[in-house]
Design a protein around this nucleic acid. Structure first.
Lengths: 229, 229
DNA sequence: CCAAAAGTGTTAAAACTACACCCATGA
DNA sequence: TCATGGGTGTAGTTTTAACACTTTTGG
């Protein structure tokens, strides 16, 4: 089967930069390419857009097919369209970025996604195409956005401690934050809900667990409130 | 001539939201469609991406062809890819937005762009496709970006007064700003250069003319400086 | 000399920064 | 009882917001 058009069309793909925080560092998920070009290289997951799906649907489908990850925060990043970004032919790629709770998405070696793996940003392999540029753009966006939109939570489990949240900001922004000032600020926003529970199995005083209160946040946005770290 | 591919491909277009400030309001440039669908309706300028040009090149080319506007601030906005956004067939559109000195781009009725015109945002005709959504996205981006990136100048002539600049911010952000505080803040940034000239032909004390000092701005960005209004 | 916009400082309130110790828990 | 991180307040500094009058110019 083939498709014929009156004018030439670029191929259209989606790519998906997946972030996660593990211990003390920011990681991204890569997949090992099974086909040419760049067969065997680690790359950002992605693939061709089908005619019967929106761009975001395509990004989510590819993400699940290639890494098993689903139901995560996903946002369009930028569309990359330089003429020669793919050596084969003209390919335009709409890039997305995803934020995941890495702990909940450890790669299961037996799954479809057995050729997917997390990589620390400090320790990345060479990437094919313009994937390095896509990644840089994603990091820049994450750093910028995390300061004025409540997306830090997306990198944590549903329930988290204030220290975990602070760590997220310290890792993403790559700077130390004062504990007392951070707590004062984030609690003053009244967008966290104390779950009444505490950590389990820790060898020190157990910390309170909070949950992001989307309802409260939406209410504040309506009242012209500004989230800022 | 025709083009055949193994898999179906969406058509790819660029669209360009052009902003300008005239007197006391924000305007955008629309063109009257000469072809179906929606023939005769006013729409955001745009067109198909060719294989031998990047996305930004395509946006600039279409912009010049349809409106005569060239050499303006242009930035990618968002890519719109809902399945049914075009009634004919699947079309994905990479949207850009441009900021222009409207006074320098009054539409010349005798030009190629004779079917282009400026419209006040408050007084827009119905728009085809998802152009209203594209426009809303562009306005939101402009409002957000103007606060932390020095792009307000792009809506003014090369030389401008502080009052003109303040007006730009008041119009874009749709709120009044205190004159003394605005001047203090913007001058403290040291990104404006006093040209030594003053306004001509005004029926009151002539104001100083300033120019945006990109060199100084870049220097400050390197020093971790934050532009913010 | 009048109309119109240019230009200019001060003060109070709010936000931010820096900083150190006691507490609860499990091993 | 010790090691580990949890949790808390205050004071100095900076930033922001509110506010009104004099100056210059052309008509």
């Amino acid at each position: 089967m083939s498709f014929t058009y009156e004018f030439a069309r670029p191929a259209l793909t989606v790519d998906c930069v997946v972030f996660g925080i593990d211990e003390e560092e920011l990681k991204i998920m890569l997949i090992q390419r099974g086909v040419a070009p760049f067969k065997g290289m680690w790359a950002i997951p992605g693939g061709f857009v089908r005619l019967d799906e929106s761009l975001e649907d395509a990004a989510r489908r590819e993400l699940e097919e290639e890494t098993g990850i689903r139901e995560v925060f996903l946002e369009q990043l930028y569309t990359f369209g330089k003429i020669d970004r793919d050596p084969r032919t003209r390919v335009v790629s709409v890039a997305y970025y995803a934020l995941t709770n890495l702990i909940g998405h450890h790669v299961d070696a037996a799954s479809d996604a057995s050729n997917a793996a997390w990589f620390a940003l400090e320790d990345l392999p060479d990437l094919p195409f313009d994937h390095e540029k896509i990644l840089d753009t994603a990091i820049e966006r994450l750093r910028g956005k995390v300061r004025y939109q409540p997306i830090g939570f997306e990198l944590l489990p549903d329930r988290f401690t204030l220290t975990q949240l602070q760590r997220v900001y310290e890792i993403v922004l790559d700077k130390e934050i004062d504990k007392r000032n951070f707590r004062k600020k984030i609690l003053a926003m009244e967008i966290l809900k104390d779950t009444g529970k505490v950590e389990k199995d820790v060898a020190h005083r157990a910390a309170r667990l909070y949950r992001f209160d989307k309802r409260a946040y939406d209410r504040m946005v309506r009242q012209k409130f500004n989230f800022e770290i």
